[in-house]
Amino acid sequence: MRRYSSAFFKTGLFAIALFCFAQASAQTDTTEVDLLSLLGEEEPVTNYATATFKTTRVINMHSVENAAGGVLDFRISHRFGAINTGAYDLFGLDVASMRMGFEYGINDRLMVGVGRSNVNKEADAFVKYKILRQSSGKKKMPVSVSWFSSAVVRMTKWEDTSRTNYFTSRMYYCHQLLIARKFNESLSIQLAPTVVHRNLVKDSTVMNDVFASGIGARYKITRRTSFNVEYVYVLPGQIEDMYTNSLSIGFDIETGGHVFQLHFTNSKPMNEKGFITETTGSWEKGDIMFGFNVSRVFSVGKRQEPKE
């Protein structure tokens, strides 16, 4: 008897359950059920800002972008002569300054590079480290911040051979904090408080330590091209009067593994201490140069993801 009632009860419940189920399915037909919502709230993910700039330079200045881990970036920077030299030099195209660089991402945060410029026969080496990455979502960070340091050795013959010349007199250093924010898909702005140290300067009227601030911005015109502008303000009274602040405007054009940067600038040197403290061109007089940077990347090492 007991068993019978139990079975009866069970069947009854089953019928009710079936009825409920039928109701539920009937509902499915009228209102669409979002199956994925059954999994509950999605776990928030950290969304890092990528491609704040198209490449590792804004124009002359380093950007917060690095070569990714295991990627070799072969880079040729080229500046023609001043446009106001006129038709004789074909508006500067007869004259050329260049820097050739090999730059490598040790991991996604740390990159190193070496380069050689024919301007003053200078070799340079640099290290750049991503300290903070702009992000939204789970972890929030309003800006990306990178540390940049470079050393330059000038290899021209000594001007004054009558005095004792030390190798250290050939050395120059530059340290920068690169602070950038990608405001939206198009606009990114970077600030760069900078100090340049020069072991040897002309005389005591100029400083060994030069404080400056760079500002750079890019605005995307299409998905693969952008308009860039960059200015370096050197606090007054630190460098010779013949030197002026660096101002450059240009375009980035990206084609697969290449980035072409075409620009007009009043700076001939292409390393940091050079364009920050030794810019001679004047925009008012048309003493500016056409130039380009070409970057070609090669994946040579194994890709390493940075730790969260």
Binding site: A68, G70, E254, R303
Partner: peptide
């Protein structure tokens, strides 16, 4: 019912080459 739903974060696609991943997401 046979109903199914899938969802995937586009940024979660991992490439061997970092630049390819950037172009995939950006361009």
């Amino acid at each position: 019912t046979g109903d199914m739903e899938w969802s995937v974060l586009v940024k979660g696609f991992k490439f061997k080459r970092a630049l390819m991943e950037e172009h995939f997401n950006e361009n």
